[in-house]
Amino acid sequence: MAGASAFHLGGDHAHRFESRAATRETPLVKWLILGLSLTFFVIFLLMPLIAVFVEAFRKGWETYITALVEPDALSAIRLTLLAAVISVPLNLVFGVCAAWAIAKFEFRGKQFLITLIDLPFSVSPVIAGLVFVLLFGAQGWFGSWLSDKDIRIIFAVPGIVLATVFVTFPFIARELIPLMQAQGREEEEAAVVLGARGLQTFWYVTLPNIKWGLMYGVILCNARAMGEFGAVSVVSGHIRGQTNTLPLHVEILYNEYQFAAAFAAASVLAVLALVTLVIKTWVENRAAQSHKDANRDDAS
């Protein structure tokens, strides 16, 4: 389901279409399409984003800063970072392994495996949380064993990490698989024939080719890991200062009618989203640039 988020080498195509009479609309139609689509954009995307910051600063800077440096907020930020720091590298290693096996080798059931990797995208976040409650909760499969050993997973940090790993599972693999499939295996085979070892081949031949796709996957994976709400909400138990991530902290403040504080915490996440979009756009431009360079090298 990441199909929609897989990056493409864009570039501006408008000139190609605007310079030809056959691919132009009449001005009326053009302005109608532009007007409708941009109004839609402003109402549904731009205004919610601006609203976050306006609401956050409604009561002034001081309230804003106070809301962010109180211990519960800081502990929520720490836990959010922890969940991302664990889940992104895990899913990165998995993504590279899965893409290597799928793109460089032929085996039966490959298409089915790709579908299975996509699964977490199509599962509701609430169900992603539920599965871990069923496994590790008090009444779960391993519940009594865990409580004998005094290990807490649900309503504790491990559960939050597990749920985050689950929902961000496909992000990096889904970027790398089509990319590495498109690149084929000739370059790696040449390296191996010339005597390179497996990891050398990956490090010096494969990695430079996939670095932009890899980065793209990592950014999106990280954004989701830090922003996940539904799955984490089910397994967290909402214990302040212990099992609250930043999105859950937002919810608690909001439900207590501390709107300014809730939006202050939300604005941190919104900044994170904006940073994600900036890096993503930058990566796309760099990838398009190196793609162009490669084509020019091929041509000369």
Partner: peptide, 28 residues
């Protein structure tokens, strides 16, 4: 197909719902 001012911004912000945590979108 069209050129218009702020187009790159619009293009980048289309992905906002992918990047913005759902709870933030909800309260906004």
């Amino acid at each position: 197909r069209y050129s218009f001012p702020g187009k790159r911004l619009v293009d980048a912000l289309v992905d906002l719902p992918f990047a913005l945590p759902t709870a933030v979108a909800g309260i906004a």
